[in-house]
Design a protein around this nucleic acid. Sequence first.
RNA 1: GGUCGCUUAGCUCAGUUGGUAGAGCACCGCAUUCACAUUGCGGUUGUCACAGGUUCGAGUCCUGUAGCGACCACCA
Length: 773
Amino acid sequence: MDKAYNPASENQIYDLWQDSGAFTPKVPKDPAKARLEKEPFTVILPPPNANNPLHAGHALYTVEDIMVRYHRMLGDPSLWLPGTDHAGIETQFVFEKYLQKQGKSRFDYDRETLFKLIFDYVNENRDVAKNQLKRLGFSLDWTREKFTMDPDHIARVYAVFNRMVNEGLVYRDEKIVNYCTFCGTAFSNLEVEHKTVESHLWYFKYPIVGEDNQFITVATTRPETMLGDTAVAVNPNDKRYSHLIGKKLLLPLVNREIPIIFEDSIDPKFGTGAVKVTPSHSPEDYDMGKKFNLEFVRIFDYDGKANQNVPARYRGFYPNQVRQMVINDLTAANLMDKITNHSHEVGHCYKCGRPIEPITAPQWFVKIKPLADKACKVVKTDQVKIFPTRFKKSFLTWMKDIKDWPISRQIVWGHRIPAWYNLDHTPNINITFVNSKNETVTGLWTDVIKNSSYQEIKTGLQSLIAPVGSKFYLSEEEALKSGPNILQETDTFDTWFSSGQWPYSTLGWSPDGHHSPDFEYFYPTTVLDTMWDILFFWVARMIMFGVYTTGQIPFKVAHMHSRVTDSKGQKMSKSKGNVIDPLTMSDVYGADALRMALVIGVAPGSDISLSEDKIRAQRNFVNKIWNASRFVEMLIDRLDVKNISLNIDQATLTSADKDILDKLNKLIISTTKHLEHYHFGQASEDLYQFFWHEFCDIYIEDAKKRLDSTKSADEGGGEETIPVLLTVLITSLKLLHPFIPFVTEIVYQDLISKYNLPKELLISSSWPQSEKK
RNA sequence: GGUCGCUUAGCUCAGUUGGUAGAGCACCGCAUUCACAUUGCGGUUGUCACAGGUUCGAGUCCUGUAGCGACCACCA
């Protein structure tokens, strides 16, 4: 054995494990029955983005590996299923940046070509993450690897969508949505980041119709939307305005008459107590628009520019430009009352950081309440346990006030929504396509078909917008029965609509009820471990989908871990330059050292402060194990004992022997207990303390004195310590194996071959049993 | 605006049924032809944020205050 542990030797071990079949549990012939007798331990890997290399956060899969290896050693059939995620908007955003470098944009391609380009781009990078997962020692069953773009997964997602449509849980509506005009897509509330913006309140005067020089002054944070105002709202109890019942106002610059409405939710104390109402560009105004049956005038389009519904001079300008023009024009018209400072929250796109434009747009929605209620129930009753428990409360709070979920995204990278329109029956469908002359054409079907053929439109199709209420068919065949000119919806599903179905889909759930043996055996899964930041995005959706689709929970435990931060507790980011790359660390210090550094002394759910110092310290620990093992072998060799035995003769034990065995026994008990309770930080710390400071510093030092005499074995050279040394060493290796699998396996194999112990891999060996007293 | 979390040694953090304060790193001294200098032995450092309360006993439970952080949220 070398003088120091060499992390490079870790590379040989992974194949040994994989080839032994340890990662791949066998499914019995009657899986459902077998499950009743002995339940497998199943973990689905939160699929990393197929396009990105791993970061320090992914290295926290260590926690899952610890659980899986522990259960495997307990003898439970254990499955840890790997996969990757296409990560819709994330990946398309990265790809568009790549296009930009080449002087191109998404608008240069029809959707099919763009999709293929992204697919190829992702495929080029897919193996990177996979090899990195192996490098970190994760005992994943690669024979069951999945990708969210696998046809069978897509088919399952479609089947569930169809069922939801048929049961009235999916609908289309033109509601106000969070729209990013730069990314060109709608987002759910969760994808909007609220930022405090220092801005102003502008006070405008709106003339009262039929009364000379009488005005209502409104206060607004968004002057530009006044072009789309269709009412002014005041509180019914506000006496300042009570005389205005039935009056109308003349909207300046536009010269359109708008009503005054009386609405309880208006706060008389804010501004002037009079609010301009723009139903097409503000969520709260949208609600008022519906309630009072107001006109909806959309003035900004999906490209972010002012459209046909505004006076000609504003057309084609962006909101911030229109804002300045409106301010100037109102000032010139002597209708600007005053401007005050005001800070407020503005929604921003979580991807590109630009302000979100609330716009009314036709989108697909999931009626979420029925799903949420069931999800709440299984969490409330602890059928799904959430750890640490404080996340249970935030889960239930969020679920209680949940709004319908907009699931359509106007991007190409994802699962295209399986809905087909008959164009001849939907003449008002708006179509954008690249024609044979490479020109982008936008228009209604009835218009574009005059200059282009159906085939030309279909081939060059970029996007389409079908009016709300358009009839759609759930398959191409069905649609074709209604006529030849059909097109599939161009929107794709929100990524979480797909990944929310990941647990049952990866295991082979089938819509016809004939599920795969894997599904029968491994579902519901046991533990889902992920970071708390996707509790709502993903965990909540998986619970809702799982209960809806399979009638069962998707997992019994949702174990939430925290963020990996730098040595100062700061979030890692490229711009700060404080990123610790897990692969570099593994190459320098070993994957074991990195894994140990990520779990030791970390409290459940708290931030994980990672530094190279900490990894180095754990590298030293790994090296300590290496050298302690080397030394034990050396001591044994020196005695030249013929038959190595692990049998401990109680009668010959010294007090030091008894002491270390007693501590070892307690360690088995505490480690087991900590692992059962997800206290990985405490378990690893105890193991560290025991191995280094009890076993090495005290026991081996003592044994050194006993053995390092000039006496031979025959003369009482301390032969009786050998079984104790080996027992403590091997048991420690087993207890440590889930945490630091490489070094423990290497040392174990060395001991086996050297002392003719029964051949087995540590990964498949049995978990130590404590002695009862 | 609502909710949650954190505050313990110079730094990063453990401390799960309440029982005389811990680790790693850093620092100081000594040792070492010895398995490991990726080492060993020894040492320094704390009004456990603050103020009350419960208790024989509180870092731990309760109440309040302050600072920091996070999440959620349609208030013009």
